[in-house]
Design a protein around this nucleic acid. Structure first.
Lengths: 191, 191
DNA sequence: GTCTATACGAAGATAGAC
DNA sequence: GTCTATCTTCGTATAGAC
């Protein structure tokens, strides 16, 4: 599997940006081209499956990117993962002037009929995040069942907070949620 | 200010359902008609502003409905509100076979250009929920600043959990999040 | 690999008959 | 109040030139 062309990568990155900013419905072929600056003729050359293939590959790439982030931060323990995710979203929200949201959530929420085939991959991605987080929390000495619940709480809280941040055009909701998650995690570790 | 016609109400309810199930982009005029069984000719009769007016009114109605739910449950204290919200979403998710999500979140996430004018109303709705929750938590003896943070955590957690429930086709994520929110609230009240 | 041109369908909106 | 065209725009996809 040789290196993929630059154009292809640019298109996928553009698609991920659009996914976060405008939701699944906002990822039109034209928008991807405009965003990435890729030439028209490249679409069906690089993605024979058309829009469906662009959606599927960009979703996978987005999921892998954040999975890598979580896994890398796991070295610093459960609190490290939390800090890592918070840093990532704070930077992403600020850099986009609060236009960007989570691309995976966008697909999960915008359940249009033509993007329905992406649901299994969304579930896959979220389960991977959950598993990694659960392991990190368990390593702190929390019982597995409780750790799994805390992992669910953390993912739901952070994803919900990112939505609130966009609406408020402020990183405050994320800061507050992370702070409360830290408190919750601390009490769980002490037991 | 007389009573509004049945057709108008049916269309708005259909629009709210579509908003939760397919996101903002899924609320097309045709889909609203099909869902509500309303006649074609009714669209611009009841909603001179066309789709934009349907979106705006259905969003407001959805926000008010959930606001009323929260306010009503506030009599039972902060835990009562949490229980009330949990019951509502559990019932909604099950009744829709996990197709329905939060209509307000759908608008917040699916930021298409043509629905951009709805952002202020989304912020309004979420702030109303937040204020009501903050008051309920403060009434339990929690300091105002902490109560506001807990309210943010609760809204973010529940909205995030609803997304996870849809993806997993299970109410388990919501149950887990509500359980952890209860724990968090309990420790906050004790201090 | 990239371009233009075009076919096809879906969606919003309007006009005019009933 | 409701219906049937019809117009326009947009989005996906394909064909064929360069």
């Amino acid at each position: 599997m040789g290196a993929r062309t630059d154009t292809r990568q640019k298109m996928l990155c553009g698609a991920i940006e659009l996914l976060g900013e405008r939701g699944a419905a906002g990822v039109t072929v034209d928008a991807v081209l405009a965003r990435s600056g890729a030439p028209r003729g490249s679409v069906y050359h690089h993605f024979p499956g058309g829009r469906a293939e662009i959606m599927s590959e960009s979703l996978t790439l987005a999921g892998d990117t954040i999975s890598a982030l979580i896994t890398a931060a796991a070295d610093r323990g459960a609190l490290g993962v939390l800090a890592g995710i918070a840093e990532f979203w704070t930077a992403t929200l600020l850099a986009s002037d609060f236009e960007a949201g989570c691309p995976v959530v966008s697909v999960a929420v915008g359940g249009s009929p033509e993007d329905h085939h992406l649901q299994p991959e969304v579930a896959n991605i979220l389960h991977r995040w959950h598993d990694t987080l659960t392991i990190a929390i368990t390593a702190e000495g929390v019982a597995p069942a409780r750790a799994a619940r805390l992992a669910t709480m953390a993912i739901a809280g952070v994803e919900g907070a990112v939505i609130l941040c966009r609406v408020d055009r402020s990183t405050a909701p994320l800061d507050e949620v992370v702070e409360e998650l830290r408190v919750l995690l601390a009490t769980a570790v002490d037991n």
